[in-house]
Design a protein around this nucleic acid. Structure first.
Length: 464
DNA sequence: GCATGATCATGC
DNA sequence: GCATGATCATGC
């Protein structure tokens, strides 16, 4: 009989046992792991830890890994950045089953059944280090997603309560609404149209790196097959879990059980709507230091959201990207909307799903719009949250694929404004000498993807 | 007026 | 030093 290392039925025992991993790697704790598995350089660390460290095989896919304890075990990578650890990626919770989710409720959902209580082990991701040698860092996070009965609370030991991180009522409500939105989209036969930008904290995220060979699944209310997706906590949300309450430099928007993101945002902007940039500048006592400064409207918007332009917790957790636009009297912006520059050699080696532009068009944006009045004075309009509709994402993908193809052929000839109603490619450089190497071996001015000015104008017209 | 090419100021 | 978001400049 092997000695009992921990009690599989006790959360506190599993938690305590997991803590011995901190500062160590799986190979440190289980030296034989290298001979017992050929997964030295690949494979899922979570599975390996479960099998070789906990010596446990999970019962099935619907229940938590430690069923008697009601505890799901997760391992996730973090990377060191500016002296602190950040999530390497989103935290996958469980696969979305399109066939069954349509009949579920949040409270009785597969997601909550499996992931209500999670033990999250963080390891430092370093590409060159084999998975079994990656070190566990920081304390494990014991995270509870849903509310629980008072009886359950009483039954829990004080020691456990102290170590448990229960999600706030406000966040829980947002997670629930996110889950319901995803279910509704599947109910509507639109599983194939799902996007990370549809939701705030809980995302329907893709599996795999994409490409043409990707397997697609059936969905209940449509004949269109959909990419396989998993519920996950956004990377930015996981960052906040890792950070804990240590960050005092951010403020809250006041989103809660009754006040939605939209409501909370409108409340901040309401007093400034219809006002000119100069008027807002006066009121906020914040002024342009240089006449050519292109980020001033953005600065104003940030100061409307939070005094001093502090970061806003909810917007960070939800990975919201703010954009400012000035409309001409015609209702269209004079300029298209730019995104970060790409490298020619990088784009030719990528799939669409791996690209930065794909990530951008799946995001949720907060659009801050000023429109020029009859005297050509830009005035603030009602802001709105927006993420790109499915059809337009398909078009953005087509432009990206066309770009990839043309970079290989002749990087000087890339998709122009007139070739698509959604997106095009144009220069994006500091100056004439800011160049990148092309597959043809030339140095060519850096470029990026842009959303067409006409397209942005239409989006704004539809949303204001 | 518009498409396309070019570059500015800032913050990290 | 450089990426970023944004706008300017030119020529048809």
């Amino acid at each position: 009989m092997p000695e009992t290392k921990y009690d599989k039925t006790s959360v506190i025992s599993i938690l305590d046992y997991s803590k011995r991993l901190i500062g160590k790697s799986l190979a440190d704790m289980v030296p034989s792991v290298n001979e017992r598995t050929n997964a030295r350089n690949k494979g899922d660390l979570g599975t390996l830890v479960e099998r070789y460290y906990f010596e446990h095989s999970p019962p099935n896919n619907h229940d938590p890994d430690f069923k008697e304890a009601g505890l799901e075990l997760k391992t996730t990578g973090v990377v060191a950045k500016n002296g602190k650890f950040r999530a390497k990626e989103r935290l996958k919770l469980t696969m979305i089953n399109y066939e069954t989710i349509v009949d579920e409720s949040w409270e009785e959902s597969t997601l909550l059944n499996k992931c209500n209580l999670m033990l999250i082990l963080l390891y430092e991701f370093i590409k060159e280090v084999p998975v079994v040698e990656r070190q566990f860092v920081l304390g494990p996070i014991l995270l509870q997603l849903s509310n629980e009965s008072n009886t359950a609370k009483r039954q829990r030991s004080r020691k456990l309560s102290q170590q448990m991180f229960t999600i706030s009522t406000a966040d829980r409500e947002i997670l629930k609404r996110d889950w319901e939105l995803i279910r509704q989209k599947v109910k509507d036969g639109k599983a194939h149209e799902l996007s990370e930008g549809d939701t705030w904290y809980l995302a329907a995220s893709r599996n795999g790196s994409g490409g043409e060979r990707e397997v697609r699944r059936r969905q209940p209310n449509s004949n269109v097959k959909a990419k396989s997706r998993a519920f996950s906590l956004k990377q930015t949300y996981v960052n906040k879990l890792i950070e804990g309450d240590s960050n005092q430099s951010s403020t809250t928007l006041g989103v809660n059980r009754r006040i939605t993101f939209d409501d909370a945002t409108q409340r901040r902007f309401e007093p400034f709507i219809g006002k000119s940039i100069d008027e807002i500048s006066e009121e906020l006592d914040y002024f342009k230091t240089s006449p050519n400064y292109k980020g001033f409207n953005m600065d104003l918007a940030k100061r409307i959201l939070a005094s001093g332009g502090q970061s806003v917790t909810e917007l960070i957790k939800a990975d919201i990207e703010m954009k400012t636009v000035v409309l001409e009297k015609s209702g269209f912006p004079k300029e298209s909307m730019s995104f970060p520059g790409f490298k020619y050699l990088e784009i030719v080696a990528q799939e669409w799903e791996e690209s930065n532009f794909c990530e951008k068009v799946e995001k949720k944006f907060l659009m801050i719009v000023f429109r020029k009045d009859e005297f050509n004075v830009p005035r603030l309009m009602k802001p709105f949250y927006w993420n790109m509709p499915f059809d337009d994402r398909q078009e953005a993908k087509r432009v990206w694929l066309d770009t990839r193809r043309r970079v290989l052929q002749d990087a000087k000839d890339l998709p122009k404004l007139v070739e698509s109603h959604v997106a095009h490619v144009r220069p994006k450089s500091r100056d004439g000498s800011d160049k990148e190497l092309t597959p043809q071996g030339d140095m060519l001015v850096k470029k990026c993807f842009w959303l067409n000015r006409k397209y942005i104008g239409l989006v704004i017209a539809e949303n204001t």
